[in-house]
Design a protein around this nucleic acid. Structure first.
Lengths: 211, 211
DNA sequence: GTCTATAGAACGATAGAC
DNA sequence: GTCTATCGTTCTATAGAC
């Protein structure tokens, strides 16, 4: 129950190693070594390596979903038809907020998310629940009201664009800091957040593509 | 030398399997089986599994780079300061053109690219050459002239956005066709291409983010 | 250039003592 | 809940015959 629980230690170690080396690139032995636990502890607490990944994925995704949901609720309490820029901020913002450990931690978490989402293995994709789809559908409806005239297909394309821009940006910053062109000091993460909102608000607000 | 060369057969099989299962999820045995070759042939022709990946990566990336480069040359031959939308199309277009095998082949190639780019292993990242950076720098300069007032950092952020949107969109279409919301018939790929140009032109043209 | 055979190492999972 | 020990599998790489 304490935060230094073996189970929690394993989750923390797996979070870090899956992000840094990918799912297949991380052995159970590496995780338990980093966690200071025994090899058999993963089997005992999680059942298998794949179920450990599912637990890690849920732990990182759920707060993001909750924040996205709460943000939309807050907007809708003010007005039934929020502006595009507010929807963008409410949806993309939580992706910049993940992890309290500052810039490196946040980028590592984004790295973890992309690692999970981009792994083709069935094993890696089986953690997903219905909550993510619910949130996305709610935003889809809100964006649809804010952008009448946009076909559902093109709207969905643009929603994917939001995810792509937020996730990939932070991954690159983490993987190749020399290319980041961000001063490593404070504010870099905040700058990227504002750039993303500018970029995505303009993109979402574009007139529908003509036939 | 013939197209049914063992070496080429192995490259084709590796291209497909790396895209479908990732680098670590693909064994050399699976590749040689699909290629109708012997297990030892990979060692003989490429030296190692990692060097085979490098050959696969170069084979798929180089035509894209060449097309991006040629597209920029064509624009610059007309005017020294091309419009943002033309730059977007010249840069992103080749990412939609990859592979002649139609929509499925193109999406699989995009999947391969994302698999390669998102794999954290050093082994997987070592294929890269200086050509990609050169093309990107040339576009960066052209976009910089078309978008004065944008800081180099924000411009670079936006360039990453282009890559993110084009790559992730096609990956999702390939991984989860049920979510694609594209009619599987002809024109789906072309629609996505146009949507991307609309989306990205608006995003790139956004006014600079204020401090 | 192609093949067989195998070395040598790492992996995930688990049985069973404590 | 934690540990040791190990089983059975799979992997890449390569030596050496043809």
């Amino acid at each position: 129950m304490a935060p230094s629980d073996t189970r929690t230690q394993i989750l923390d170690a797996a979070d870090r190693l899956f992000a840094e080396r990918g799912y297949r690139g991380t052995s159970v032995r590496a995780i338990t070594d980093l966690a200071g636990a025994n090899l058999a502890a993963v089997g005992y607490h999680f059942g298998s390596k794949a179920q450990l990944l599912a637990a890690v994925a849920r732990r990182v995704i759920e707060p993001i979903n909750a924040a996205q949901c709460a943000g939309l609720d807050r907007l809708l309490a003010r007005t039934p038809d929020p502006a595009v820029t507010d929807l963008v901020e409410a949806f993309a913002g939580p992706l910049f907020d993940v992890m309290p450990a500052g810039d490196e931690g946040g980028a590592r978490t984004s790295r973890l998310i992309v690692t999970i989402l981009s792994d083709p293995a069935e094993e890696v994709r089986s953690w997903t629940g219905p909550a993510e789809d619910t949130v996305r559908e709610r935003y889809l409806a809100a964006f649809g009201r804010a952008l009448p005239g946009l076909s559902p297909e093109e709207l969905r394309f643009r929603m994917r664009g939001i995810l792509a821009v937020t996730a990939v940006d932070r991954v690159e910053v983490y993987q190749r800091p020399s290319l980041a062109c961000l001063s490593p000091g404070a504010g870099a993460g905040e700058a990227a957040r504002q750039w993303a909102i500018t970029f995505l608000t303009a993109a979402m607000s574009a007139p529908p593509t003509g036939t």
